[in-house]
Design a protein around this nucleic acid. Structure first.
Lengths: 346, 346
DNA sequence: TCGATTCATGCAGACGTTTGCGTGAAATGA
DNA sequence: TCATTTCACGCAAACGTCTGCATGAATCGA
């Protein structure tokens, strides 16, 4: 088994021998069990440190059932929002001694064999950030009692979720646009599969479509830049009196595409058409875009999500919970605003 | 241990009982050991499928030493290049039944406790994609005989590596620029920490600085958009007769920042200044940028990297290997080219 | 027909930890 | 001083899989 007999890994057994105690004592001492005397604990800890002892998680998992691994299903990382999410997740998880096994990244569907890896490795829980509504991984978890929490998605059966208040975000943007004098909205959505997009649009529409203001255009931009670009082209091609005077993109990446297309075709943003997005991805802050958007509280969402998951790993019977975090509008220059300054970020 | 006594997981023991054979036979049958008769194997496989048997990787690892897990150290995912790499890695690894445990993502340094997780989980190998020269994870692996391969980096002690021929890429771009009549280059590099950037610049300079053509400007853009933007501003601020007539950005993201700044300050790209980048990230293809660049063969790099790693997992004594893959120039419109059409992608 | 191979399978120990239960000694109370 | 509680620790089984070795049966050659 060990092909390098010269270097016998230091294990609990090794330690127990050199300390002259039992393996149980070592095990308990190392994890701070109160039934071990302080003196003994100190001695063992010192020994372990000196020997460079590294617990074998596999053995621990086998024995205790806890792997410390969390399965991660990530959305398309090429959307900067998911990249942000990933970095934040990894950062916070590492601080809590939790590790991610990455199950999926990207837009495509998850293969069955991939989802089953969750079970093979006995992940303690599963985190799903994909906005996509269907999810094989969630099914597998549900069937096997693995707690799952979703970040940036509305929940589903057997799952907790944390997301930002998408409807309120949409409404906030709508109010901002109305205050800026806009009356004819165009909505660049992301299809029926995205719970986020749906909520955002709902909130937007409810706040925008009143007093004669209304939505005059909708386009499925599939959450990608190219989709937004195509939408922008379509809008510029419309007769001027039919065109929307403002655009609500359910994600920044779409809005950026639309802005580029609109400008490339000779119209101005925001003079001719205002554009607002959602997510507050770093790219949107570039001077070229300076897109007015709604910031999701990513760090807080991640923190809450990890907490939710940890709680359910400890106590599987906990009922599903769904938390909504408040985001904030960030006003830049891609949309005209009321002379007085318009709505203040609440 | 099992808190849900109602659902006894089906294990090899379960199967062996219902098949009336020993656990050894089941184990061997399931992995296609030739010493098991075809009839027996078929019977067991059928039984396993019916019972929905899922091997417990933790137990397997404990016994055999192989976890099937690969540690992954990812560069800053907010750079689209790493996002591409991530998606490709996950896709290809999944197809080979390999899983990634993600050790790190982002620009910051790796904490010791994080790097040690590699050992805790007994990863079979480690993949490092960060361009950063120093790497705690690599040290840990080296000390413990865990094979590591680096993608998109030049190798170091105890590591294999696969990257694209960065120097040739730089040279290729330089030839293209020279053919387009450029004589005064500006280089937007990424500091001394990036082996890629250094190689790219070296190749570029060797091919560009001759016959009177030369490099007149260098700027550390730190591999981020903002760095490129600042560089662009600096360039525009230079007296016209001192300015470079073309810019080589060691990565697209930098070049894009520079383009935006140059245009924002009233100069034109490519009419006043040509810009070329490196990586061929999706964002660079947008009409707004259409940046001429050098495409790294990401899929091939990932494939080779995974192969290299698999080989070393199987045969740890294998000497380090370092493979260079050829990329290709992709010509768009961010740089003026010779009337005749210039260099053809080779 | 019999010993020598080959074949298919079983036995049992090992991998490193965890944990319920048991136990001797020290501490406590009367 | 003795019975009782508390304390600190050890015992041993269990987690699920792998694998070197042994074993009985079937096949082979002569």
């Amino acid at each position: 088994m060990t092909d390098a007999p010269g270097k016998p890994r230091t294990t609990i057994v090794t330690l127990s021998r050199s300390a002259g105690v039992s393996t149980s004592t070592v095990s308990r001492a190392l994890k701070g069990d109160p039934s071990i005397s302080p003196a003994m604990r100190a001695r063992i800890v010192a020994l372990a440190a000196e020997a460079g002892y590294m617990p074998n998680i596999m053995a621990r998992t086998l024995s205790s059932g806890r792997s410390g691994l969390i399965g991660l299903v990530l959305g398309p990382a090429t959307n900067p929002f998911y990249a942000m999410l990933l970095e934040e997740l990894v950062r916070q998880a590492a601080a809590k001694q939790q590790r991610f096994m990455i199950i999926h990244a990207g837009a495509g569907p998850i293969e069955d064999s991939t989802a089953e890896a969750l079970l093979h490795y006995r992940v303690d829980g599963c985190l799903i950030t994909s906005a996509d509504l269907s999810s094989r991984a969630a099914d597998v978890c549900a069937r096997n009692g693995v707690p799952v929490v979703m970040i940036n998605r509305i929940p589903r059966e057997h799952a907790s979720a944390v997301s930002c208040d998408n409807a309120e975000g949409g409404a906030s943007l709508a109010r901002f646009l109305r205050a800026g004098g806009h009356r004819r909205a165009g909505i660049l959505h992301s299809g029926a599969g995205s719970s986020n997009g749906i909520e955002r649009e709902r909130g937007f529409t409810e706040a925008f479509d009143k007093d004669g203001a209304r939505t005059v255009f909708r386009y499925d931009a599939r959450s990608v830049y190219e989709g937004g670009y195509a939408a922008g082209e379509a809008i510029v091609a419309m007769p001027a009196n039919k065109r929307p005077d403002c655009l609500f993109a359910v994600s920044d990446i779409i809005g950026m595409g639309a802005m580029d297309a609109i400008r490339a075709k000779g119209l101005r943003v925001p003079e001719d058409i205002s554009v607002v997005g959602f997510d507050c991805i770093p790219d949107g802050a570039r001077p070229h875009y300076a897109i007015t958007t709604f910031r999701q509280p990513v760090a807080a969402m991640v923190r809450r999500g990890l907490d939710l998951l940890a709680a359910r790993i400890g106590e599987p019977k906990l009922p599903d919970e769904s938390v909504l975090l408040r985001g904030e509008i960030v006003i830049r220059t891609s949309a005209r605003q009321a002379a007085g300054g318009g709505e203040v970020a609440d």
